[in-house]
C-alpha cells in the first residue's frame, strides 16, 4: 500500500503531519474534512462553493494545474493568495507527497 505524507497548517498556524494511503480514492477536501478541519465541502467536490479554500505553502508546482471551473471559483474569493487552491480539486495521489497546505477557512 502506498502512503503519502502531507502537512496541514490550521488557521492559527499549528502544523500537523497526515499519512494517507493513496488507494482510498479521496480528494484533499475529503481528507481535511475527515481530519476535523473547518472545511465544509458544501458542493461535494464540484469546485462550486470554495468552502475548501487552501493555500499551498510548499509543493504547488507538484500539483495538477487548476481547471477552468476551479479558477472561476477562486476568482470570487476576496482573500485569494498566489498559491490558492480548492482542496476538492486535489486528488490524493503520489504527486502531492510532501506538500504543505494551510487551511484558509474558519
Amino acid at each position: 500500500m502506498d502512503i503519502i505524507n502531507i502537512y496541514v497548517e490550521d488557521f492559527s498556524g499549528n502544523r500537523q503531519h497526515l499519512e494517507i494511503p493513496t488507494e482510498i480514492n479521496l480528494n484533499l477536501m475529503e481528507v481535511l474534512k475527515a481530519s476535523e478541519y473547518p472545511v465544509q465541502g458544501t458542493c461535494g467536490g464540484m469546485a462550486l462553493c470554495a468552502t475548501c479554500h487552501v493555500e499551498v505553502l510548499s509543493g504547488s508546482e507538484q500539483l495538477n494545474p487548476p481547471q477552468d471551473q476551479e479558477l472561476d471559483m477562486l476568482d470570487t474569493l476576496p482573500e485569494l493568495t498566489d498559491n490558492s487552491r480548492l482542496a476538492c480539486q486535489i486528488p490524493i495521489q503520489e504527486n502531492i507527497d510532501g506538500i504543505i497546505v494551510k487551511v484558509l477557512t474558519e
Binding site: T42, A50, T51, T76, L77, P78
Partner: peptide, 8 residues
C-alpha cells in the same frame, strides 16, 4: 458593493 460570492 463587494461581490465575492456566498458562503454558508
Amino acid at each position: 458593493i463587494p461581490l465575492f460570492g456566498l458562503s454558508p
